[in-house]
Amino acid sequence: MKLPAVEIKSNQCKGCGLCIDSCKPGVLSLSKAFNLLGYQYAEYKQSGCTGCEACYYACPEPGAISIHKEKKVQVQR
């Protein structure tokens, strides 16, 4: 997957939609399907994430949203 990217654990989402509202590039949406908890869940459109982390902080659930990013590091060898 192209980074940065949002990973949403669909079975930990309660469908409040706050992440969707917070997403500036508008790359999150609510699913048609229902998850194990009985909620429609947030989904990532698989591209367009800027890694701003707004959705991470908007989400009340501790583990539902993760943001993966690339980071440049300097290594000695």
Binding site: L3, E7, E53, Y56, P62, G63, I65, S66, I67, H68, K69, E70, K71, K72, V73, Q74, V75, Q76, R77
Partner: peptide, 13 residues
């Protein structure tokens, strides 16, 4: 020598 490489970081729980 110091080289620059990329690594993946995750912000989650």
């Amino acid at each position: 020598e110091t080289i620059t490489t990329t690594t993946t970081v995750t912000k989650g729980r």
